[in-house]
Design a protein around this nucleic acid. Sequence first.
DNA 1: GACACTTTACTTGTATGGAAGTATGGAATA
DNA 2: TATTCCATACTTCCATACAAGTAAAGTGTC
Lengths: 224, 224
Amino acid sequence: MSQVTMIARPASTAQQVHDWLHQRIIQGDLLPGARLSETEIAEQIGLSRQPVREAFIRLASDGLAEVRPQRGTYIGKISVSAVLSARLIREAVESDLAAMVAGSGADLAAMRAELDVQDQANITGDVAAFIASDDRFHCAMALAAGQAAVWNDLERLKSQMNRLRHLSMRVFDRSATIAQHRAILTALEQGDGDAAQTAVRTHLRQMLTELPQIAAAHPDYFTE
Amino acid sequence: MSQVTMIARPASTAQQVHDWLHQRIIQGDLLPGARLSETEIAEQIGLSRQPVREAFIRLASDGLAEVRPQRGTYIGKISVSAVLSARLIREAVESDLAAMVAGSGADLAAMRAELDVQDQANITGDVAAFIASDDRFHCAMALAAGQAAVWNDLERLKSQMNRLRHLSMRVFDRSATIAQHRAILTALEQGDGDAAQTAVRTHLRQMLTELPQIAAAHPDYFTE
DNA sequence: GACACTTTACTTGTATGGAAGTATGGAATA
DNA sequence: TATTCCATACTTCCATACAAGTAAAGTGTC
């Protein structure tokens, strides 16, 4: 925890607007291709256009929005190739992380706890809670490997995949995801690095079969 | 090539300022911890503060600058942990890419050509040219694997490592780097996936020994 | 001389006005 | 009816002015 976050100085208005829109986009509240208006949002929250504009610039840097000069700002569509490359990167990195954890004897209680949360969320049908726990499960593995910074660096890539999941989770089987998570954790607990790597790669390759189906179901939300 | 790029519309001023500063930071022209003034740069290039300010916001999103409200904007110091995690990610990803290329029979002429460029740059001592060719060598491998998008996604991480290399290349042995590149290419040409992966990992682990030395030589430029 | 306080200059943050460019709808014309 | 032209409203971009906060220099006091 850095000093900046310890000293409770409220973030700038522009930053708050950015965070607010960022979350709404990730959660699928603002849909791909939708229009964003500086003046409209500014009036909506009682600010001038400038901080809203700067929030848009940040969103564009995040790859979540597209500012077209003199035309308008739009929620970025989900790039199929971007999702595929993000998936490939995650598979490569998390496979290595799994190998590091398997031989280390690190504490895996956090991962096991998330499995219980996912079971609950699956029963109650709370999609948002399930996705959040899914994220924390993978994050816990990175922490077990002592690589918290790696997880932060993947944040940008994960955000694109999370948008996809918020579209897909209503359709696809969460039980299968839980089973895959359980396979990963079992292999880690047994200290079987090769099995853990295989389980991670199998899990993350699941998206290769899901992506075409989701893209076909929502063609307007995707590009490339 | 998309229509957008065909119609040669000049980028916005803020974007140009951002690109200019981005390049100067990566090349080590603007050193870590140095101060950036909105008004100063604005006067320097004959613009108002606003576009410069928006360029700063983009740089902060890139992780290259830090805007401290009511205090000033500074070139971000090189985070040791960020470099380490970027290195780990590159090792994992490029190892997978090497395995994909080794079995594919893809054209490797581009990689071989870069080796010649690096030999030349090593002789003439042109550090910037060497680093640029080094980048293109690795990029060529990603292209040979049919994963251009992956290389783009790693851009953010590479920029931090490139800042480091512009500090280190004046010190460290470029011939060793070339030998490592040659080992990678040889393994790929022989179709030996395992050897290629090993060569890639060995090459990228070189930084693990270089980083502490560079950080010790320039303690003011690093953090964490 | 050392210390506490005040002032002053300087920083980024926000508001507002206008400039440049785009898209849309309607009117005039063939 | 179809097409071209144009006026109008809208968008983002940039310039300017002001507000809020920080830091450092200066000043007075002990």
